[in-house]
Simulated scan of single mutants.
Amino acid sequence: MRLIAEDLLLLLLDDRRGTPASQHTDLCLGGAVLAELALLGAVTVSERKGMWRSARVRVVPGAVVEDEVLRDGLALVAQKERSAQDLVRRLGKGLRERLGERLVARGILQRRDERVLGLFPRTRWPEVDSTHEEQLRRQLTATLCAGAEPDERTGTLVALLSAVDRAHRSVDHEGLSSREVRRRAKQVAEGDWAADAVREAVQAATAATVAAIAASSAAASSAGSS
């Protein structure tokens, strides 16, 4: 099974260097897992009620998922009721390496462990087979630049990319401006590519990703100024 989070990781990595384009990649991946669990009907993500109340996530009774990453995510959700924002952070922890290894096993990425300045360990994931990513970008281009109707997976991926302002960087614009592609991505994210309950849950998971990124950025800024 190919996860939405795996597709998202490919789109967020620099193909040649194998480094993430965003410092919030792990939070994005956590959001992708939560969104896919919602898409599969394994969890419900309640709508955020007011400024001071976060969306809550609950397991749907009897829910079963096949992929081990999603199973582990579902088990985490089942531990106790948590906010969607908290779960995005927890789900994303260590996920980049786990997904990277899966993509290495499929011959898509290569793992390179090294030390920056001879001191700081770093893992890079350069691409060795671009076939899948090229197909993925064609699907996104058809949706965002040619007006094709997205399926549920593509709609979810567009919603996640739009939330972190990466949609326009993931496609061939085909003559459109970045602003036009961004606008189309927002329209897709808010569109009717899935049943209302599922789409609303995915949108709540996406909003939680944005909130987690904002909280992380604020914390980093505060630490840097202290």
Rank of each mutant, 00 (worst) to 15 (best):
M1W: 10
L3N: 12
L8N: 01
L12Q: 10
D14P: 09
R17C: 07
P20M: 10
P20T: 13
P20V: 11
S22D: 09
S22Q: 08
H24E: 09
H24P: 02
T25S: 08
C28I: 04
G30R: 11
G31H: 11
A35M: 12
L37R: 11
L37Y: 07
A38H: 09
A38K: 07
V43E: 03
V43I: 08
S46F: 06
E47F: 07
E47C: 07
G50M: 06
W52T: 10
S54M: 09
S54N: 05
S54Y: 04
A55W: 08
R56G: 00
V57M: 09
R58T: 10
V60S: 02
V60Q: 06
V60L: 04
P61Q: 06
A63V: 07
V64D: 10
V65E: 13
E66N: 10
E68A: 14
E68Q: 14
E68H: 13
R71N: 08
R71A: 13
D72L: 12
D72A: 15
D72H: 08
G73M: 06
G73T: 09
L74W: 14
L74T: 10
A75D: 15
V77M: 09
K80R: 11
K80L: 05
E81L: 00
E81T: 02
A84Y: 06
D86I: 01
L87Q: 08
V88R: 04
G92S: 15
G100Y: 09
I108V: 12
I108P: 00
L109P: 03
L109R: 04
L109W: 06
L109V: 05
R111S: 10
R112N: 01
R112D: 01
D113R: 06
D113T: 01
L117K: 13
L119N: 15
L119H: 14
F120Q: 13
T123Y: 06
R124G: 02
E127W: 00
E127D: 00
V128S: 00
D129K: 00
S130M: 07
S130Y: 02
T131I: 02
T131V: 10
H132K: 08
E133I: 12
Q135N: 12
L136I: 12
R137G: 12
L140H: 03
L140G: 04
T143P: 02
L144N: 01
C145L: 01
A146W: 01
A148Q: 05
A148D: 08
A148S: 10
P150A: 13
D151Q: 11
E152M: 12
G155P: 09
V158T: 03
V158G: 03
A159G: 10
S162E: 10
S162R: 03
A163M: 04
V164D: 01
A167K: 09
R169L: 00
S170C: 07
G175A: 00
G175T: 00
L176V: 00
L176D: 00
R182A: 01
V188A: 05
G191D: 11
D192R: 09
D192L: 04
W193C: 14
V198K: 15
R199V: 03
E200W: 05
A204V: 11
A204C: 13
A204W: 12
T206V: 15
A207D: 11
A207V: 04
A212G: 07
S216E: 15
A220K: 15
S221W: 06
S221Q: 09
S222V: 07
